[in-house]
Nucleic acid binder design. Structure first.
Lengths: 409, 409
DNA sequence: CAACCAATGTTCCGTAACGCAACATTGAAA
DNA sequence: TTTCAATGTTGCGTTACGGAACATTGGTTG
């Protein structure tokens, strides 16, 4: 299949081929390390000669390094290649009530991970975070910090990286990117938390071969991320994926967004707690983990509350399926800890899909916090790597005289 | 931005660059013809030497041809290049009640256009269509027919091109592609009618620079097509875009699909007629054009019926906006003929978007029938051109031994 | 214990791209 | 008739990848 939108396409030159193949090789090393050059040639389909050159480049750029020399029964021993774990990134997961700061290496391993503070005033919070980052840099003095990836519970403008929408976070009009860049002189990349989770799954190799997927993060609200054609769909201005505020029940309760019966108001963890309170107004207040524990202990009211939530989630997924027909739907959030019981409920509701074809596969994605942190790191590394290349091989700028392409707009 | 899904990526070689640049050049010629080689170099950013080689190739493949020699005040005259209008395609737009057959050249001009028949038995209908096509081939004996593009009111499997879902068309289990291929020995490509309309807009250059858009085809039902990242989003199995059956009003009437209050049941032309019948049960039956004419003549009941439809359309668009945040929403269908009056109603309802950022631009796309036909031609030409290249430059197949890439699936 | 040999990785050459600069072409303007 | 400005072509340098010959290496084998 050919790209449709040629008029805005970049010109191609032979360097493009190298960029693509280099990425493929790095990807292979990430997943198959330790791996020899000849194995890379076999796996990738590239010639050993080409692999050697690409590997030399990747080593000189410190993405990878030579490791053990492995002797087999016959022949020249192979020099194994592995990802260079001296390259690390900061990952910052900002939540409504706290922030998690981690140091993650290229393989996705956590070198450190700490809860930083209760967020109140963004200025103070950021100062605190920057101080902690300086300490971590000193502690990992042998590592090279490539930048800072940030996951936020809100929508971020793809260009300016300013917060556009973060109802659960009271950090409006605060420029996270600039604050961090000024504080540490590192590259900063910010993205939505659901997007980060999806990127994390992609980075981990789980989405290999999957070109259309949706990740649904069920927590206090519901956030979604869309993978379309193997790419994150951020929409114009980065606002895509707000399925959480799609009306699913016009007779439902009023949502903070002003509409009635948003999906969030029935499918989120907050909604499950509300169901529980409605069903058992006299019982003591609990949190979502308490509710799930009760449900696991077969407390009928708790089971009913979470089942209602699960049904609502399933109904929303049906809608997403009609809209996007993804191959795979990934769920993260607290409800995944009760998956054996409530996964089938969601699946059943999703299976009521009215249209032809199989419903999408439904699976859980790992722990939300780790996923968001790894995703934040992935966001950074993706952009960082691109930037890296483009400085090595300055792309020809396509000259666009004022009358170049008729943009009918 | 870098592609996420590298593990399924094809290897790149220098031929890729040529393919991309060749497409860019052909695109430029399509939009700027007649155009000289030097102009192409200026517009594209490629060197004149490179352009010469690419142009030579395109001429030898008969995509373009040399035209007039233009003398300017000074210097060597330019040899203008233009798209070769001897290359034509069949475009077939299958509708529930009829089929339209056209011959379209590379520039999108119609060389012929006729309504073929009332569709009943697909076997007979197809036989009739093939006969007409043979006649047209004889009539345009000087042209070279590159293939047949087909637009159908239903979903088509991207690989097998079999009808998956066509509630309004009773052609189940009939293999259109094979029937046409066997009948005429031409390449056949089929796609959904909404996708065809979107491709037609893209082909016409209207979507230049727009990477996220949604087209909404409002007729008896509602069909949508999604442009994500500059590419058609067909979803897994080609079933994406079924927004028409998204529940928008659970208390609404029962839809043929078994659900209650589907968007189609309030936003389609059929719904507008139903509104009219409900409001004026005694008035004589009319069709949608009659209703729109009445509305234009300020018949209050007709105005009310179409206004209800328009509001429903706007509500659905709000939902699409929350989900996908497109830059542009295009509307086709009968209601566009009352756009001055009802466009603002839709716009107003869309403007109630609860989220940050501007709502998408809302515009009409041209006449549905022409768009579907041009889109059908575009579907064919896109695939045809890709095929063409791949035979000229056989891509290296990427060897994938059984243990090549860990597909965690 | 030395020659063998199988597997790894490198080198060298051919081909296909694009960029760049010198050059050829052309015909009106001076 | 000469000049010259604009178009288009040719030839060379660089960067890709593919392919085959070659170098490397160390256990295996006689």
């Amino acid at each position: 299949m050919r790209r449709i939108d040629l008029s805005s396409a970049q010109l191609a030159s032979s360097e493009n081929a190298r960029d693509i193949n280099r990425d493929i090789v790095l990807e292979l090393i990430r997943f198959r390390q330790p791996v020899s050059r000849v194995e890379l040639a076999r796996f990738s389909g590239l010639q050993p000669s080409t692999i050697s050159i690409i590997v030399e480049q990747l080593i000189s750029e410190r993405w990878i390094r030579e490791g053990a020399v492995v002797r087999r029964s016959r022949g020249r021993p192979s020099t194994m290649l592995e990802v260079n774990d001296l390259l690390v990134t900061f990952a910052l997961d900002i939540r409504p009530d706290r922030a998690i700061l981690a140091v993650i290496d290229l393989t996705g391993r956590f070198l450190s991970r700490e809860t930083v503070m209760t967020v109140s005033d963004p200025e103070i919070a950021m100062k605190h975070i920057i101080d902690r980052m300086r300490l971590l840099q000193e502690r990992h003095i042998d590592k090279s910090f490539e930048g800072i990836g940030v996951s936020v519970p809100g929508r971020v403008h793809p260009e300016t990286q300013l917060l556009l929408l973060a109802p659960n976070l009271h950090w409006h009009d605060f420029d996270i990117k600039t604050a961090l860049e000024d504080g540490l002189n590192l590259q900063v990349e910010i993205d939505n938390d659901a997007n980060a989770c999806l990127l994390s799954e992609s980075w981990s190799g789980r989405l290999a071969g999957v070109r259309n997927a949706v990740l649904v993060a069920v927590s206090e609200g519901i956030g979604t991320a869309i993978l379309s054609g193997g790419q994150l769909h951020s929409g114009y201005n980065g606002l895509a994926g707000e399925f959480g505020h799609i009306p699913i029940d016009p007779s439902g309760p009023l949502c903070g967004c002003g509409q009635r019966g948003c999906w969030e108001m029935a499918g989120s963890s907050r909604a499950a707690l509300q169901f529980y309170r409605d069903l058992a107004p006299d019982k003591p207040a609990i949190d979502i983990y308490g509710l799930l524990r009760l449900a696991e202990e077969n407390d009928p009211i708790a089971v009913e509350a979470v089942t209602r939530q699960a049904r609502a989630i399933g109904r929303g997924l049906r809608l997403i399926t009609a809209a996007l027909s993804p191959e795979l739907i990934l769920i993260t959030g607290e409800i995944t800890s009760g998956w054996q019981r409530f996964g089938p409920v969601i699946q059943e509701e999703l299976g009521l899909a009215v249209l032809a074809g199989h419903p999408p596969h439904l699976e859980t994605a790992g722990d939300g916090e780790s996923a968001r942190l790894r995703g934040a790191a992935a966001v950074l590394l993706q952009r960082h790597a691109s930037y890296h290349h483009s400085t090595h091989y300055p792309q020809n700028e396509r000259r666009l005289p004022s009358d170049a392409i008729p943009v009918v707009r």
